[in-house]
Design a protein around this nucleic acid. Structure first.
Length: 434
DNA sequence: TCTGGGGTCCTAGGACCC
DNA sequence: TCTGGGGTCCTAGGACCC
């Protein structure tokens, strides 16, 4: 892929930015409670099997990282402050952040609550160079929300993301087109999104630890180690990658799961729990304006082995009753082999828009949570163009309704998507969002 | 006191059809 | 009385991301 027909004379602009909020959940909690300033703070589950969802920078200097078991984090910092997640709160702040980005840049791809890609090549005339735009965005987020963020910039999306990580905390790093390969060469391959522990192992076996070393490996060797991703990773390494913004496809699945602090040994308790989950998933489907064709039961045994069992329906549904039947039938087939259950989950995949016109299902989605509302707006924008929905007056007004509606549903303070395992077994912490 | 919860994407085998 | 090749759907598992 080449850059657009950009009248050959102009220099190639590193106009793909990646903006990432710094320690998002933890930064919010510290902002809201200044007494936490300077302390090792983590957001996450406090239970026996809790993990860290986000760690403040003082916590990070002690070696604490997200996804770390909470017990390990406590060992590293006995004075650790553990704050339970407030997902709805974070989501509202996320909406505000994305609103700021949308004020300045038309072309945005939000990829999670706390990060987004921006193509600023069209905003130059109005707002200046990528550096100036990044500055403006970070300043506005700091002023309006009191939160730190970092920005990376490049000619490619993958490199912009790597750059933002190098810019943290509270910094900016724009990589010029010509300096891309040089910038990447010394970095470990693990910085590339998509190169996880397994791929790193495979690369280490052929002597590759840095991105620079990737380029010296014969293509065929690299392909054996990485599989079909090899060409893409190679393009990254030599600076020729030009991937721009993607566009978020509509939701493909949705579900809920739960890990118990102590394994469940009573099959009836498991059954009760998964029927509640099925109801909850059905409710999420209806709120989102979806029906599902495939119901998946996920089970993890005490030794960590995980299985999934699915069944596909003749007719798509969003009925809790139907989901419960399916999920219970799947459980009945496995229960004798699953004496101790650590985790159970229910997921609906093969989603389709609920009956009615597409527009109708978009309207249904309005009664869902903020995220769904946003997804619905994204789809509307895709379909009708960016003028179809105005920011400013329309957004907050539309956003008010689901907020009120949402608040009457959950029975637990922190809860929302997880539904209400009322009266049932031990209620674990309500997850997180990272 | 080993490892959460929400997802996406990919692969591979088997069934089934033409 | 043996057997190709292509395509699609379903199921299951695994790697990976935030």
């Amino acid at each position: 892929m080449d850059v657009r027909g950009d009248a050959g004379s102009t220099q190639e602009i590193p106009g793909i930015l990646h903006l990432d909020m710094d320690a998002f959940f933890a930064s919010i909690e510290v902002r809201d409670d200044p007494g936490l300033q300077g302390l090792p703070v983590v957001v996450g589950g406090a239970g026996a099997r809790g993990v860290v969802a986000a760690a403040s920078y003082p916590a990070r200097t002690r070696g604490i990282r997200s996804a770390m078991p909470m017990a390990s984090a406590r060992r590293l910092a006995p004075d650790l402050v553990v704050v339970p997640p407030r997902i709805d709160h974070y989501r509202r702040i996320s909406d505000h952040v994305m609103g700021v980005l949308g004020d300045v840049v038309a072309d945005i791809e939000q990829i999670s609550v706390d990060e987004a890609f921006l193509d600023v090549r069209g905003a130059r005339r109005l707002f200046g160079t990528p550096e100036q735009i990044a500055d403006l965005l970070r300043r506005r987020i700091r002023e309006e929300l009191g939160l730190p963020s970092s920005v990376g910039g490049s000619v490619s999306r993958a490199v912009a993301k790597i750059a933002s990580a190098r810019a943290k905390p509270d910094g900016m790093l724009i990589v010029p087109a010509a300096g891309t390969a040089e910038f990447l060469a010394p970095l470990p391959v693990s910085v590339v999104s998509g190169i996880g522990p397994k791929a790193q192992e495979a690369l280490a076996r052929i002597g590759v630890r840095t991105i620079g070393q990737l380029r010296e490996i014969p293509r065929s060797t690299l392909t054996r180690a990485l599989g079909p991703r090899a060409p893409e990773v190679l393009a990254l390494a030599d600076g020729s990658d030009r991937t721009g913004l993607g566009h978020r496809a509509r939701d493909k699945s949705l579900g809920t799961e739960r890990t118990w602090d102590e394994d469940l040994t009573d099959p009836t308790a498991v059954r009760r729990s998964i029927t509640q989950m099925a109801d909850d998933v059905a409710r999420q489907l209806r709120r989102g304006g979806f029906v599902t064709r495939t119901v998946v039961l996920k089970l993890r045994a005490s030794d960590g082995t995980t299985i999934t069992r699915s069944s596909t329906l003749d007719h798509p549904t969003s009925s809790g009753e139907r989901l419960r039947e399916q999920v219970v039938a799947l459980w009945e087939r496995e229960r004798s082999a699953m004496r101790r259950v650590r985790l159970a989950g229910v997921r609906a995949s093969n989603l389709e828009p609920a009956a009615g016109t597409p527009v109708q299902s978009e309207l249904n989605a309005r009664s869902a949570g903020w995220q769904d509302l946003e997804a619905a707006m994204d789809r509307a924008l895709d379909r009708f163009g960016s003028r179809s929905l105005e920011r400013g007056s329309t957004l907050p007004a539309a956003a008010d309704a689901p907020q009120r509606r949402g608040s009457e549903l959950p029975s637990s303070p922190a809860g929302e998507a997880t539904g209400q395992p009322t009266g049932g077994g031990p209620r674990t912490r309500d997850h997180d969002g990272r």
